[in-house]
Design a protein around this nucleic acid. Structure first.
Lengths: 93, 93, 93, 93
DNA sequence: TCGCCTGATAGTTGCC
DNA sequence: GGCAACTATCAGGCGA
């Protein structure tokens, strides 16, 4: 009996995954359509992809910077109630 | 002036793409979550992935068979108005 | 000195790769020639490519089925020294 | 009867293609092995790929130059028995 | 957690 | 010259 339950659970999980993958593919198709539309308007898809890639990297870069800053903030947090810590904070910002 | 219009168009296209890519990534994360959930329930993610892959391939296989059959039908189509062609078609189906 | 040795090693590796890529390209050209020959004989290259693709997929399909079965066997293997596990194995095969 | 002949021809062509594709895949595997070997020796595969790509482009560039030169040579060939052609040739070389 | 390896994605070449 | 097949690259997932 518990085998049936397991099999049913497995079936449901597989179906959820397949449904999500179908959605993902649909969006991928939408993206392709937008590039097609851009091309029809006279833009170069290759260059656009390059721009998208660069912006993603810039965002990633900013996120990393932000994370680093958070780390500093946390490290300095424990010192923020001391005069020396206050000074370090003022230099890091 | 038309440069501004082009630049604006480009900006809109890029933003649409970035929004779609964000959605796509979100769904990819959802899929990962489902696998995580399955693992927590005691299923082996590797086997599940293999099953999903296999089912996808079976579907692709059927589609390809259908496409091949269509191609044959088209190739035979040029004979469909002759008795012999009719016979060939009936054998191919 | 060891730099020279490294440089020489690198050169040899690069040359081996370039030689292999040349061979690969040669074979790709041969394949193209065969399709050309087929076309000259009156066959439709598009259909031929579809057939080749389909046969490759069928092979891949069989391999995948086999791999899945192996995975199941491995998953059941942990039970193979119990009577109940033996029974499960006999049902799965 | 001619159908049988055609089918047999088609079979032979398909088999030749499949055999060539198997060879091609084998060489692709060999290339992968060489990169693996290089990596094991301490080289960076990504950089090596870049080098191979650049050398291919350089070769292509040289080939184009050579082709252009041939075109000039051919164009000048028809003039090579005239004093002016002789002069042009001497300038082009 | 890191390296490997497979699967997804972008670029290129050949065909129509 | 556009489109589709194919190849090469890259990133995410798996195993050690």
């Amino acid at each position: 009996m518990s085998d049936n339950i397991s099999a049913e659970q497995l079936r449901l999980l597989i179906e959820r995954i397949e449904r999500l993958e179908a959605e993902k593919q649909g969006i991928a198709d939408d993206i392709k359509d937008v590039y097609g539309e851009a091309k029809a308007t006279g833009f170069d898809a290759k260059i656009m992809r390059q721009i998208v890639r660069e912006r993603k990297m810039e965002k990633h870069h900013r996120d990393e910077q932000e994370a680093l800053l958070d780390t500093y903030r946390a490290a300095l947090g424990m010192l923020s109630d001391t005069p020396l810590g206050q000074y370090a904070l003022s230099r890091a910002a």
